[in-house]
Design a protein around this nucleic acid. Sequence first.
DNA 1: CGTTCCTTTGACCGTGGTCAATCAAGGTGG
DNA 2: CCACCTTGATTGACCACGGTCAAAGGAACG
Lengths: 238, 238
Amino acid sequence: MLTHSAVLKNAFHPAALLDQPAKLKPASERQADEESLDRWMQLIGGVSYYPRRVQIIHEDEAADRLYKVISGTVCTFKVLSDGRRQIGGFYLPGDIFGLEYAEGHTLAAETITNAKVLVIRKNVLAALASRNAAMAGHLLLLTARELARVQDRVLLLSSKSAQERVVGFLLEMSKRGASTANSVELSMSRQDIADYLGLTIETVSRTLWALENCGAIEISRRRRIQFRSRSRLVQLQQ
Amino acid sequence: MLTHSAVLKNAFHPAALLDQPAKLKPASERQADEESLDRWMQLIGGVSYYPRRVQIIHEDEAADRLYKVISGTVCTFKVLSDGRRQIGGFYLPGDIFGLEYAEGHTLAAETITNAKVLVIRKNVLAALASRNAAMAGHLLLLTARELARVQDRVLLLSSKSAQERVVGFLLEMSKRGASTANSVELSMSRQDIADYLGLTIETVSRTLWALENCGAIEISRRRRIQFRSRSRLVQLQQ
DNA sequence: CGTTCCTTTGACCGTGGTCAATCAAGGTGG
DNA sequence: CCACCTTGATTGACCACGGTCAAAGGAACG
């Protein structure tokens, strides 16, 4: 039988679903659960290698696979009727993409650099999840995280100036991406950044110049951004 | 034991999770499952009545409840640092909101009209879901739908003109809201529409005037929009 | 060294934001 | 029933941010 007390105290955080019937786990062991999902995915998934600028998912094809980036950078995107491209997100090593659930809402995906990707068939995961509450809880957790991430982007796109967007992007990448103490190595082109932020390539370029000019950053080799004054950046982000 | 064949054929559509171990359900019965979730929610939830313009969820409070609108209109929103407000979505009768999973990503919610709302404690749902794969699958389905909806908004906000946004909004409301064959009754103010579309109230007003002027719509009593030429609207939406 | 691709820079312009005034619609009380 | 007030919507004048178009600059590659 299920011991309710452990579940009830967790509000609805998806991690609560990790508590399986007849098993009780303290919060300190959740991390292990997350690792166990990883092990499962490595077990039931296969590794694929893609060269740079190659499409992994085509728009409106069956969304029957889940992908985990092992190395490299991938982006999801949608091509609009006027030919412009909106990037849905950048996925770095450790990130999972392909969390769409069809109904005609698939995003395409392509590699930005050479990439090593773990590919998992969703039906296998679903079979696991239907028997294993921990698995189901994890899928929910992943989807919820993605939802939160996209909601943040709505805020960014609707009411931030070009400068705020670019600064926000740099800070985000320095948190997530290949970055040393005070510099980031951007793996994507200016065009990618523009399509991600809902700006044009020219505006991105001009904004970066302005940031460099006011002493907040320094640009070397185009893709390498050094932070001169992180506090000023945070302040410019609002 | 689980009979795999039924699960495997469903790719990863969350409905696949509805198939419980030791039970096999054809696709035609899924609708019934969805209704069963409704019955559960009514069983374990309580009904609340809120007057118009009252806050139901306060930003950054514990996200421990799920809400289903029975009557009236509710919106979720976030107040930005500069005082402006971004509306995350409008929720009409039948819609569910509060699908955030915390980690500091909660949206506030307030009533636009008087509203009758079903309130469900998430921990009770979580307890159900940890034992019942159908329940877990449904939570995933709901979250995935919300994700798809928000992704569509990213597209709308990043690359559509004011006119395209307003037209898109009107068509969306005519599909979802209180609408007759060719008219909609908007329950929200111009300010709400503006905050939803990432525009100003003036731009919304001017755009509606332009649409009326070109013979696409007709406005009576401010909130009632009649469609004169739906085909022209669809065309203006791109 | 030349080609190609990406990025930067410049000049110009349009969409939509800002500020302010006016107008319409309820709601309340005399 | 009508003045009065409040709230929400419209309209106008102006301007800035960022888009567009075009050209030049600079890396990377053969």
